[in-house]
Design a protein around this nucleic acid. Structure first.
Lengths: 210, 210
DNA sequence: ACCAACATACCGATTGGTCGGTTCCGGCCG
DNA sequence: CGGCCGGAACCGACCAATCGGTATGTTGGT
């Protein structure tokens, strides 16, 4: 995320001044993601936000209707990314065990790589308006159901146990993934891929029949 | 803070009026737990809070130094309860598989029974001062380690698999438990005991060797 | 000339917290 | 027994500060 900003900076043709030449909305998204995750939405004033992004209040309110609108944009970005990645894995070829393992490990990797997004996600939902909360929950539900379908596919094939509802398994798994934001620190010796591997192994162990 | 509760309790012999005769600090804790979980800490003004509790601002600031102090008291209450219950289960007799199953199912039950506390817990940590965040994390860490010890006990006995660190398993499990606050609604047909049973079964499946 | 893209100064509303006062109750003294 | 007293419990009007949002102005490209 930070490197993309750097890449955009380097790739940008016009070299106005010194740095931060990424488009303003993107700069705001980046700054908001960092500050909202660090101090929380309410503890981040609009002034701090625009200062960090290197723009002015007027610029921000030109692109976003409100502070909440900006928060919502953060949600939309992360939701779209997750759904896209899951769909890619689910539709790939190969046995369902492998596809589920890959999808499960991948969501951990991307979560670790975008920890800020996930911290915001599961901490600040209540800061959105009720309608937008519903919208986010709706999209999240689709994601959840897509994951469930994968499990049920394996259950029908007889490679996964059937005495536990797929719903329970999926909720348990995503709970663990969301929780990463509370304990995972990149300082640890375990990388996202390591933890993803462990988590996915544990998931398949759970689903082993018999 | 604690001594005032004792004093208020001792003085509360009279039965004034109709209802809500609980001591003032307790009333504030109850109101805060509900409102903080419903609307979030920042969205709850002190005025709303004291109105809900049926007391005045002066009364609140007599018992709590600040709004944050009240939030901290909520954390302390839930932390103490969880640690006590885990210790009871861990120290009970019987095979480690049964003790772990019982402890795992119990934490789900108590989480469901005190959903408001848990919603606050994993959503509002950042509203505390850095020192108090550390204190909460420290207590939580003790809890976590106590749970890990239980797993490791089973690993040494050979009844649990050893190719996954106990730390990972515990983090994954508590992640799932914390996440309950985001999807569990008592309207569902599944009660806390049901989900606790499922979760604990899944945990033991994960740990099954081979 | 016109419009999108910004910049800047400013405002109304709200909020956490304070502070001087009042009530109530148990204990102590005469 | 009764009057007094000290402090804990509690009240509620008030404040300083902050914040999200806006209104108006300016610029640069087409």
């Amino acid at each position: 995320m930070a490197d993309t900003a750097a890449a955009a900076d380097a790739a940008d043709t016009r070299s106005d001044g010194a740095e931060n030449s990424a488009p303003v909305p993107e700069r705001l998204l980046t700054a908001a993601t960092r500050l909202f995750a660090e101090r929380g939405v309410e503890r981040t004033s609009v002034q701090e936000l625009v200062d960090t992004a290197g723009v002015t209040k007027g610029a921000m309110y030109h692109y976003f209707a409100s502070k909440e609108d900006l928060l919502f944009a953060v949600y939309q970005r992360v939701l779209a990314m997750q759904m896209r990645r899951l769909e890619e894995r689910a539709q790939a070829g190969g046995p369902v065990r492998e596809r589920l393992h890959e999808a499960a490990a991948d969501v951990v990797r991307t979560t670790v790589e975008n920890l800020d997004d996930m911290v915001i996600y599961f901490r600040s939902l209540h800061m959105l308006s009720p309608e937008r909360q519903s919208e986010v929950r709706g999209e999240r539900r689709q994601y959840h159901e897509r994951f469930c379908e994968l499990i049920e596919e394996g259950q029908r094939q007889g490679v996964f146990r059937t005495d536990v509802p797929s719903d329970i398994v999926a909720n348990q798994y995503f709970g663990a993934v969301h929780h990463l934001g509370m304990w995972y620190r990149s300082a640890g010796e375990l990388g996202g891929a390591d933890i993803g591997g462990y988590f996915a192994d544990l998931l398949l162990s759970e689903l082993r029949p018999g």
